[in-house]
């Protein structure tokens, strides 16, 4: 397993090319092209702003105003996470031609999926930054240094899960449909449209074992809430957990690798 893991480095050029291809191909043919990567999150933000200020001016505490911005801090990374998993569950099947007909390192496919979605996440960040400036939120530049760490943890975690899902979906196609529902549940089980502090005490324990809770809380701490970043401990633990998930996911992927060409 570790020998094939070490080969990953050699596929750098391939991964890079495929990510670029993915991004280029996604908006090819549409009028606005690449700008959709900016517009999509911007439009999303407008919709949430409208819903939560006009339609549902709900009862969230004052510390969470502007509520749309708060949600946006969570939804942006969540979209990266959930689309990565959804797409990676299908990526080996969609790339079946490559696996069956060309000597192709299959693990490149889920990695490319996660990375391409990460680029979309990055393209959403300027929109987020623009709104942070618009609302004149106080941002501590030192806290911002945590952002790359949070992103890295999410990248490792997501890639690990993507390995796991892409390999298993080849054998159990049901996972694809199951996953959509699991992700919806997972979304609401993660403090994204509410904050961890709003959750009732007896739910806290459940929320705390959800790895995404700590990722989202970290994003919110750095990008939204005032005061110093107070989630380092959890983030560190999650970082270690993510590495374990990554290795386990790759282990499963490597074990099932030989079956891909036949089962895809």
């Amino acid at each position: 397993m570790f020998s094939s893991l070490s080969k990953l480095g050699r596929y750098r050029a391939l991964i890079q090319t495929l990510v670029v291809r993915d991004l280029k191909a996604r908006y090819r043919g549409s009028v606005l092209g690449f700008f959709w990567s900016f517009f999509n999150p911007a439009l999303l933000l407008f919709i949430y702003t409208f819903v939560f200020t006009k339609v549902l001016p709900s009862s969230h505490p004052a510390s969470m105003e502007p509520f749309a911005l708060f949600m946006f801090c969570g939804i942006l990374p969540w979209t990266w996470f959930s689309s990565s998993l959804l797409e990676s569950s299908n990526t080996l099947i969609a790339g079946g031609n490559l696996i069956k007909k060309v000597m192709f390192p299959a693990e490149v496919l889920p990695i490319v999926t996660v990375l391409a979605n990460m680029v979309h996440f990055f393209l959403g960040l300027p929109i987020l930054a623009a709104f942070v400036l618009y609302y004149q939120r106080p941002i501590d530049p030192v806290e911002l240094l945590w952002l790359p760490v949070i992103v890295l943890v999410q990248l490792v975690l997501t890639t690990g899960l993507a390995f796991f899902l892409s390999a298993l979906t080849v054998h159990f196609r049901d996972l694809k449909d199951l996953l959509g529902n699991i992700l919806t549940l997972w979304f609401f089980a993660t403090p994204i449209i509410y904050s961890l502090d709003m959750a009732p005490q007896d739910m806290r324990w459940w929320l705390n074992i959800n790895p995404m809770t700590h990722l989202m809380r970290s994003y919110q701490d750095v990008l939204f809430f005032e005061g110093s970043f107070g989630h380092q401990g959890w983030l560190l633990a999650l970082g270690i957990g993510s590495i374990v998930v990554f290795l386990a996911g790759y282990f499963v992927f490597d074990r099932l690798r030989d079956s891909f060409a036949e089962e895809v």
Partner: peptide, 21 residues
């Protein structure tokens, strides 16, 4: 291996880019 030609071509992008990929 010339097993399936053009496996991995992406239909939306140009021949030039596909050659590189």
């Amino acid at each position: 291996a010339l097993i399936e030609l053009g496996a991995g071509f992406h239909p939306e992008i140009s021949g030039r880019e596909n050659i590189f990929i």
